[in-house]
Design a protein around this nucleic acid. Structure first.
Length: 841
RNA sequence: GCGAGAGUGGCGGAACUGGUAGACGCACUAGACUUAGGAUCUAGCCCGCUCAUCGCGGUUGGGGGUUCGAGUCCCCCCUCUCGCACCA
């Protein structure tokens, strides 16, 4: 063993050995408990960044530690390989997306391997492989059959110059990111997945996700946005029909003084037709519709449509306004306006000089006067001016008024969700084809399952203009109708890439299965994922879609009861969302030019140092501040540990062998040596306790490292080339050093393996996680703190089992305590066993 | 605006159930070893008073409260970060 630590040599040696031995492959049920550890798979963008290093290091620590704990661990990796950057590369540099993606995967795979991540490489998948996406096409067909997938017109961002649809991310200040022409909205037929059918289950399911951060659950709940209220129909005045509104405040219906409807609402044109307002309304509608969503969010404009409706409870005539802030996509696209009890309605009413009625009076405040109100009153209270409902607390009135509306036939209870169905069509080339064809006689026809996969052709021309390259590829577009055999055209849109990432974690359980999507038994054995780790930026989209897909695939019976498992309702039991990597106060990103290249770190310091820094510098959920000195510190620790072990390796190995052989120990151990040995063993076993807790329960990996450093500090000066004469101390040192190496194995596996070998250990990968020797933890003495009036005045040692009275007597006898107590009356004393004595004078 | 999270030394961060605030690391200072070192080792390192050890006082964004005891619990306020942003 060299006395100098050479990370590159150590790392390539062990990485080679792991690959040879297939060291980290899951074994699929050998009677051991399973543990599925998963990190969000990367997009093959070219090279890994520090965010990946951090994410995958955290995951690797968990995976390696659970393996040592005896679990059968599944720790897979793959590539979220479809997506826009590949197309951009093609357009800008003339490289085919498939080639670009494959090359990136090759390079990044090498990078991940050089980091020493313990993946089961046999299970590697890339979502752009037809062997992968064919199952997704099949799921889509099954969803189509069940009405869970459907087609309707919807608005897209369209660049007329480039002749293409733009993703929201490609619209910058309302302009095309590439040619800077103004982006238009266009209505296109799009495919949707009916995620709203699962809104309620996705919402209530959150309650069971106790292993998820509260933050993420809150974001999901808000995203789903359930509102309970009522639908009320306001009959039109002077003509047939009515306007249905959704409200969460049916208790305020007597205070409604007008009705606002969305500019897209079909009644806008119908009602204004033939009135004096017709022209003004048309202009307003056109004006608002030309605005971007952002512009629309600013103003609270509206215009009278020239017609009236009636309050179904009072019969009062209410004017109808077309208003910019009413959304066609939520509720019924119409709202009853109650200026006194809704802030937007209040502002709108003031601006348009519309009447205001107070119908809820707060209990403990002066009565509200509409003329003097400065803002709407939205708090609780009792009803006034509400006919038969006067005097009711408003919460109760919600139910009573809704019941009355139901009885009267003009209303009902209603629940609304903010969640919209998921539009999955992308007018993009580099994605999985949507497996349907369009036939002039039969209409929309699904591709036969036996004809799957619909393979994405590679012989396309990518110019970035003129629409989807698939649409121009005759050999792809022209096909025959599966139903009538006549000529038909293929769908040229591809799936949103979030579709691929919604089920990849299921596929890892049987990635090479080619006759069905999943081996049910394998899936039931491995799922759910025990620990999922990724960036919080996926808190809503990916994590919600994945939950949705899990439930859909359950209902389509792709997953489900089998010999080894029950129904899979939720994919991820525990979720860890790691923070961003920050440098110079901003997230590391290419555009800001503040990146640190993982390759550079590996070359300069080694993978173990990079891993150690990521783990040690911050707890995982917090942002990680990059620091050049921090990585030096991590490197220094590993070099120091190397030197310590190198210094004593021969006798350490011998001492370990002796202990393993059960050789008699206590022979040559004097009082001082025995005392030192006991103290060291206490430190060693306390460290095992702390590290185990930190890794398994608290997931505070940074403090786990701190604990190991304390252990090393505790024995560093005792390790010398010459072994200590005392055999007990020698054994305790060998144990301490061995424990250090084993505890560090999940974090810095290469150097740990090398050091383990140096001190005579065999296969570190097969080494169990250290067990705590409870007897070693026992303290001979405990330090007691004495507080006088809450201030620490003295400390002294006692045997841990000393009676409280004896402890108190000893505390009072302490000279420093006496100095503070003398001449004063003791009002109260308190003994917290093993901790402190509190005296109040 | 709503929701969530966070404010602790010069810095990253510890302190888990209310019980020694500042673990561990970085930076810094002094010394040792050295031709030299940005290597390594030893010691110091929250602030103030004190020559200094001892000791005393103060200190977890600010203010108040509960308690023998509060970074931790409760109330009010301030600042920052993230998410959703007209959702009726």
């Amino acid at each position: 063993m060299d006395t100098r630590y050479d990370p590159q040599a150590v790392e390539s040696r062990w990485q080679g050995r792991w690959a040879e031995r297939h060291a980290h492959e899951a074994t699929d049920g050998t009677g051991r408990a399973k543990f599925y550890c998963l990190e969000m798979f990367p997009y093959p963008s070219g090279r890994i960044h520090m965010g990946h290093v951090r994410n995958y290091t955290i995951g690797d620590v968990v995976a390696r530690q659970r393996r040592m704990r005896g679990y059968d661990v599944l720790h897979p990796i793959g590539w979220d390989a479809f997506g826009l950057p590949a197309e951009n590369a093609a357009i800008e540099r003339g490289i085919h997306p498939a080639v670009w993606t494959r090359d990136n995967i090759e390079y990044m795979r090498g990078q991940l391997q050089r980091m020493g991540f313990s993946y089961d490489w046999r299970r590697e998948i890339a979502t752009c492989d037809p062997e992968y996406y064919r199952w997704e096409q099949e799921f889509f067909l099954a969803m189509l059959e069940r009405g869970l997938a459907y087609r309707r017109k919807s608005l897209v961002n369209w660049c007329a110059r480039c002749q293409t649809v733009l993703a929201n991310e490609q619209v910058e200040d309302g302009r095309c990111w590439r040619c800077e022409s103004v982006v238009e909205e266009r209505e296109l037929e799009q495919w949707f997945l009916r995620i709203t059918a699962y809104a309620e289950e996705l919402l209530t399911g959150c309650d069971a996700l106790v292993g998820w951060p509260e933050k993420v659950l809150t974001m999901q709940r808000n995203w789903i946005g359930k509102s309970i209220g009522a639908e009320l129909t306001f009959p039109l005045a002077d003509r047939e029909g009515g306007i249905t509104v959704f409200t969460t405040r049916p208790d305020t219906v007597f205070g409604a003084t007008f009705v606002s409807i969305a500019v897209e609402h079909p009644l806008v044109a119908a009602l204004s037709a033939g009135t004096d307002e017709e022209r003004a309304v048309a202009e307003f509608v056109q004006h608002v519709r030309a605005q971007s969503t952002a512009e629309r969010a600013v103003g609270k404009d509206g215009v009278f449509v020239g017609a009236y409706c009636r309050n179904p409870f009072t019969g009062a005539r209410l004017s109808i306004y077309a208003a910019s802030f009413v959304l066609m996509g939520y509720g019924s696209g119409a709202v009853m306006a109650v200026p006194c009890h809704d802030q937007r309605d209040f502002e709108f009413a003031r601006a348009h000089e519309l009447p205001m009625r107070v119908v809820v009076q707060p209990d403990d405040a002066p009565p509200l006067d509409p003329a003097r109100m400065e803002e709407a009153y939205v708090g609780p209270g009792r009803l006034v001016g509400s006919g038969a409902f006067d005097g009711l607390p408003n919460e109760e009135a919600k139910l009573r008024i809704t019941d009355a509306a139901t009885a009267g036939g003009f209303g009902s209870r209603a629940t609304q969700y903010r969640l919209r169905d998921w539009g999955i069509s992308r007018q993009r080339y580099w994605g999985a084809p949507i497996p349907v064809v369009y036939c002039d006689t039969c209409g929309v026809v699904p591709v036969r399952r036996s004809d799957l996969p619909v393979v994405l052709p590679t012989d396309v021309e990518l110019s970035g203009t003129g629409g989807s390259p698939l649409a121009k590829l005759e050999s792809f577009v022209r096909t025959s109708c599966p139903q009538c055999g006549g000529p038909a055209r293929r769908e040229t849109d591809t799936f949103d890439t979030f579709v691929e990432s919604s089920w990849y974690f299921l596929r890892y359980t049987s990635p090479h299965e080619d006759t069905r999507a999943f081996d049910r038994d394998a899936l039931a054995y491995w799922l759910p994922v025990d620990q999922y780790i990724g960036g919080v930026e996926h808190a809503v989209l990916h994590l919600l879609y994945a939950r949705f897909f899990t439930k859909v695939l359950r209902d389509l019976e792709y997953t489900g009861p089998s010999s080894v498992g029950a129904t899979l309702d939720e994919p991820f039991v525990n979720l860890l969302t790691q923070g961003m990597v920050i440098k110079d106060g901003a997230k590391m990103s290419k555009s800001k030019g503040n990146t640190v290249e993982p390759d550079y770190l590996v070359q300069r310091y080694g993978a173990d140092t990079a891993r150690l820094f990521c783990i040690f510098a911050a707890p995982p959920e917090r942002d990680l501040d990059w620091s050049d000195q921090g990585i030096e510190g991590a490197s220094r620790f590993l070099h120091r540990l190397w030197r310590i072990v190198a210094r004593g390796r021969e006798w350490l190995a011998a001492a370990r062998a002796e202990t393993a052989a059960g050789a008699a120990r206590p022979a040559a151990s004097d009082g001082a040596g025995a005392e030192q040995a006991r103290a060291l063993r206490r430190l060693t076993h306390r460290t095992i306790t702390r590290v185990t807790e930190d890794v398994e329960r608290r997931q505070h990996f940074n403090t786990a490292i701190a604990a190991v450093m304390e252990l090393v500090n505790g024995y560093a000066e005792l390790v010398d080339e010459v072994p200590p004469r005392d055999t007990a101390l020698r054994a305790a040192l060998a144990e301490a050093v061995g424990t250090t190496v084993v505890l560090l194995a999940p974090f810095v596996p290469h150097i740990a393996s090398e050091l383990w070998e140096a001190i005579g250990g065999d296969d570190l990968d097969a080494q169990p996680w250290p067990a705590v020797d409870e007897s070693a933890l026992a303290e001979d003495v405990v330090e007691m703190v004495v507080q006088v009036n809450g201030k620490v005045r003295a400390r002294f040692s006692v045997a841990p089992d000393t009676a409280d009275e004896a402890v108190l007597a000893q505390a009072l006898a302490h000279e420093r305590v006496r100095a503070h107590v003398e001449g004063k009356a003791i009002r109260k004393t308190l003994v917290v066993p093993g901790r402190l004595v509190s005296i109040v004078v």
